[in-house]
């Protein structure tokens, strides 16, 4: 029951999700880039209007004359001014702005929150090394505090991108990249894989939940409390199914014998907003469908379908949704 209500709330929250519009900036880097964009947009609009105007006038001004119209602007003036001097001036402005903007971005800051993200096929592993817990497809950060995300891959190249927070950082196997930013406003922001990484590249999303420090601390604290055993008969049965089936070979649930790492850590699965790297909202119906046949929801992924008796599936769903 609780799960259903929670899922309803989640659904509503998802329904409200806003477009990942990069100039609706909610992070330090996105703010700077948005500022840069509006400057470039103004320049570009001006350049397009002026040069486009020249093209049209050049095309039309000779109309109806036998030999073309004379002009005070010499050909060399066109080339020197339009081709060399003005562009160079604009480019110098841009170069200065570029260097200035870049120097403010991705700089190390004191006392950052460290997070390690690993791009998997086709989901994201998220670790909080200092706090020593792992989750997946959902990154929580406190608003205002500097965040340092280490970005890695042990498979192919992906790219970590949250348009409303800032630019991309690729996950390069064999290379440790770092992305530094601050969230400036609370909210849930859509993240996406931006480097083609195989069949389910399109559905390799994630969510960044930026929340006030207090809420973030509560979220962390919940992960640090020892994980309680199932509290009802149903969830207990669900746990048995989970450990008996193949699930445990691929998934981890802290405090149990399930320690697989092929798939996302499910220790806090019930509290997550979505299933399958933000492919479908997290509700019992979707979860049951996911377990029975993940390939129909996200074709080509590395999780096999599992045939279960209806009662067992029900119990398994209840168990997973109870994990927080």
């Amino acid at each position: 029951m609780v799960a259903v209500v929670a899922a309803g709330g989640v659904l509503a929250a998802c329904g409200n999700r806003r477009s990942p519009y990069m100039f609706d900036a909610r992070g330090s880097e996105a703010h700077r880039v948005a500022g840069l964009w509006w400057l470039m947009f103004a320049l570009a609009a001006g350049v397009y209007a002026v040069v486009g105007g020249f093209i049209l006038v050049a095309a039309l001004r000779g109309r109806g004359t036998p030999e073309g119209r004379a002009s005070r602007i010499t050909e060399n003036a066109f080339i020197w001014l339009g081709g060399l001097l003005v562009p160079t001036a604009i480019l110098m402005v841009l170069a200065v702005v570029t260097v200035q903007t870049t120097s403010h971005l991705r700089r190390p800051e004191r006392d950052p929150l460290r997070i390690e993200v690993v791009g998997k096929r086709w989901w994201w592993q998220v670790r909080y090394p200092a706090q020593r817990f792992t989750t997946a497809n959902e990154v929580h950060v406190p608003v205002g505090r500097p965040v340092e995300i280490g970005i890695d891959s042990d498979n192919v190249i992906h790219s970590f991108w949250v348009p409303q927070l800032g630019g991309k950082v690729d996950t390069i196997p064999g290379q440790h990249n770092v992305w530094r930013f601050r969230a400036t406003r609370a909210g849930t922001y859509l993240g996406e894989c931006a480097e083609y990484c195989g069949v389910q590249h399109a559905n390799m999303r994630f969510l960044v939940v930026a929340e006030p420090a207090a809420a973030f601390d509560r979220w962390v604290a919940r992960h640090l409390t020892p994980h309680s055993a199932p509290t009802s008969d149903l969830t207990e049965k669900g746990q048995l199914v989970f450990l008996r089936e193949t699930c445990a070979g691929c998934h981890t649930v802290a405090g149990t014998t399930a320690q697989g790492d092929e798939g996302p850590d499910l220790t806090d699965f019930g509290s997550r907003l979505a299933i399958g790297a933000d492919t479908v909202p997290n509700d019992p119906g979707n979860l049951a469908g996911w377990i029975a046949d993940p390939q129909s929801i996200k074709p080509g992924i590395l999780m096999p379908p599992t045939a279960l008796a209806p009662g067992e599936l029900h119990a398994l769903v209840a168990y997973l949704e109870s994990l927080r």
Binding site: T65, I73, E75
Partner: peptide
């Protein structure tokens, strides 16, 4: 940009046939 304005300059005094 230089090429671009060379083209514009070429058209400028010309009689364009579309």
């Amino acid at each position: 940009g230089v090429q671009f304005f060379a083209w514009i300059a070429t058209m400028w005094r010309g009689v364009i046939r579309f």
